[in-house]
């Protein structure tokens, strides 16, 4: 399924924390766009072609409602591009290219786990910081496919966006570096991969590396969603290449979701 490109309207913009925003736009599959799935992303541009920054910004899909076409992004304001995205108001226009990438196949994962000969037959979804963003649609799709996952969410400080996960997750485990909420420490301190048939993760590389290491000890299969600096989002520029055990792979097209062992194994 290939990406398409169009201009669309902002439906809502909400600031959850000083640097965390939730942006909802209209995305109409009926107009030729494909339905986005968990782990996929869009290239967003909300500024004219002759204004900086030069490139659109890749932002993961946080949520999508096929009934209304409401497409939601949860993102952190980091630089010039995301600052301009955060200035968008309802009714403003932005350009979208997507859905891009090879996300999580929630239906297949749920079927695999349900078909396991032995327990645990459970899935853990592990997010760190803004890496929780793509996990909401993942949890929704897993729940719809019959396996409500457990969510493990780690934050540096005050958590955000967790309320959305309540209905589509079994248990929610929380950890913060600062200790303001949940377990005081890293999320890997509360994750026990032996209790899960699959672990799916998105967050800082150092966190995902730690999650993978725990999974590897228990032989629990682990999938990781990566981030990369990219120009096109379509597999054309090769700017986001990740050097994996099975060769160079584009984060944007062959990823962003990879078998964690291919990326992190020594």
């Amino acid at each position: 399924m290939n990406a398409t490109s169009c201009n669309t309207a902002v439906l809502a913009q909400q600031r959850l924390q000083p640097d965390i925003c939730r942006l909802t736009v209209a995305w109409a599959p009926s107009a030729g766009g494909h339905i986005p799935h968990a782990g996929q992303f869009f290239m967003l541009r909300a500024w004219p072609a002759d204004q900086p920054p030069l490139l659109a910004r890749p932002i993961s899909v946080h949520d999508f409602d096929p009934a209304t076409g409401a497409l939601t992004f949860l993102y952190q304001i980091k630089g010039q591009g995301t600052t301009q995205l955060a200035a968008l108001q309802p009714g403003d226009t932005l350009s979208l290219t997507g859905p891009c990438g090879n996300g999580f196949d929630a239906a297949a994962l749920a079927a695999e786990v349900a078909g396991d000969a032995l327990p645990p037959r459970k899935i853990a979804v592990v997010g760190g910081g803004i890496g929780v963003a793509p996990l909401l649609l993942l949890c929704r799709e897993l729940a719809a496919a019959g396996v409500k996952p457990d969510l493990f969410a780690g934050y540096r400080d005050t958590p955000y966006a967790l309320e959305s996960f309540v209905g589509c997750c079994n248990q929610i485990y929380l950890a913060t570096d600062s200790g303001v909420a949940g377990y005081h420490g890293l999320i890997t301190g509360v994750l026990h991969p032996a209790q899960y048939a699959r672990v799916l993760t998105c967050g800082p590389m150092v966190m995902m590396r730690g999650v993978y290491a725990l999974c590897a000890e228990q032989n629990t299969p682990c999938l990781a969603s990566l981030e990369g600096k990219m120009a096109c989002g379509l597999g054309a520029c090769l700017g986001c290449t990740c050097h994996t055990k099975i060769g160079p792979k584009t984060v944007c097209k062959e990823g962003p979701v990879f078998d964690a062992g291919e990326v992190f194994a020594e």
Partner: peptide, 14 residues
Amino acid sequence: ERLLETPAGLMNSI
């Protein structure tokens, strides 16, 4: 690094 944006430009080292 393979990409860097510059004023009105893009540096690449693919």
